[in-house]
């Protein structure tokens, strides 16, 4: 890898701000699917997540000049998307529906032969059964692969508080999935 052969987020942000608008597509490509996962888990619906991700990228572009640290674009973008997801949840509290869970399960790729559609659907329902805070920490750690300290930095909270949230989420998931394991 060089290192230099791939433009950093900061490079792209500065280029976009300097007028190279098309390069914003590189940032969208880079983070689109990563945050598609996050938004889908948070909202429980692929369609709602796609709208949220699109909207967040457009908002981020609108406010790009306010991104104080271009090299930390992704953390800044994440907060925009997070606000958008939480607002969406407040607007539509019924999204934790069986229909939504089916929709998410349908796009999940399964590379485990033993996994059934029913298990995936059950898992999505169980995730939707968590509180938004619990679901968020679970998604960030186990879907996004962030460490507790990275999540704490991103959400401006402490690691012990995150762990407490996560440990409750584990128990709740186990309870809800006990008939599907």
């Amino acid at each position: 890898m060089r290192s230099g052969s791939q433009a950093t987020d900061g490079d792209i942000v500065r280029a976009v701000l300097a007028g190279d608008r098309e390069r914003y597509a590189q940032l969208v490509e880079r983070y689109r699917d990563r945050y598609a996962r996050y938004a889908t888990r948070m909202l429980g619906s692929v369609d709602a997540a796609e709208d949220a991700v699109q909207d967040a990228f457009v908002r981020a572009y609108d406010q790009l000049a306010q991104c104080k640290e271009p090299d930390k674009f992704v953390g800044w973008f994440f907060l925009i998307l997070r606000n958008r997801c939480f607002a969406e949840r407040r607007r539509n509290r019924t999204s934790a529906s069986l229909e939504a869970a089916n929709g998410v399960a349908a796009v999940d790729r399964s590379d485990g032969g033993a996994e059934t559609a029913e298990q995936r659907r059950a898992l999505q329902l169980a995730l939707l059964g968590l509180t938004p805070d619990q679901r968020e920490v679970f998604v960030l750690k186990h879907v996004e692969g962030l460490s507790y300290s990275e999540i704490a930095e991103r959400l401006s909270t402490s690691v012990p508080s995150l762990k407490m949230r996560m440990h409750r989420a584990y128990d709740k998931l186990r309870e809800q999935l006990r008939d599907h394991t």
């Binding site: 689109r32 699917d33 598609a36 996962r37 889908t40 692929v46 997540a49 796609e50 991700v53 998410v104 796009v107 999940d108 790729r109 399964s110 590379d111 485990g112 996994e115 298990q119 995936r120 898992l123 995730l127 679970f138 186990h142 879907v143």
Partner: peptide, 10 residues
């Protein structure tokens, strides 16, 4: 493992 394997692309 079941959670980690799932993926979404847009």
């Amino acid at each position: 493992a079941r959670v980690a394997r799932t993926d979404v692309t847009m």
